[in-house]
């Protein structure tokens, strides 16, 4: 699998790492059941602190994209591909709304107001 980080990105590092993994899953770089490289390997290859990587992976587990299994490491969850694609679009929507001056609550209200 190929992971890439944007060096000019100003978001917190753990969000950037989570974003890179989310994109890799959405683009089919790794499928359901595939084992992710260990946090230590990811941290060495991306030149990011291992705790930052772990924080990113835990966040992705909470989103339902990853599964942590004892003895099997971190694997991609079933159905994670389409799910992560949606996650990416929601994040883009929230970011775009913020740029235009709308808060998250405004966006939620807009969605509620949809027919």
């Amino acid at each position: 699998m190929l992971l890439s980080l944007d060096k000019s990105d100003t978001r917190p590092l753990h969000e950037q790492v989570a974003g890179a993994v989310r994109r890799a899953i959405a683009e089919g770089e790794c499928g359901p059941g595939d084992r992710l490289p260990s946090a230590r390997d990811l941290s060495a290859a991306l030149d990011v602190n291992v705790n930052t990587v772990l924080r990113a992976l835990r966040g992705l587990r909470d989103e339902g994209l990853l599964e942590f299994r004892r003895g099997r490491g971190v694997t991609v969850a079933e159905g994670a591909g389409p799910h992560s694609g949606l996650q990416i679009r929601v994040r883009e929507l929230v970011a775009e709304a913020a740029r235009l001056g709308y808060s998250r609550t405004d966006v939620i209200d807009m969605i509620r107001g949809l027919p």
């Binding site: 699998m1 190929l2 992971l3 890439s4 980080l5 944007d6 060096k7 000019s8 084992r35 490289p37 390997d41 990811l42 290859a45 991306l46 030149d47």
Partner: peptide
């Protein structure tokens, strides 16, 4: 230029 790329395989 502004990207850091890593490739993994197992």
């Amino acid at each position: 230029d502004d990207r850091r790329v890593a490739w993994f395989s197992r």
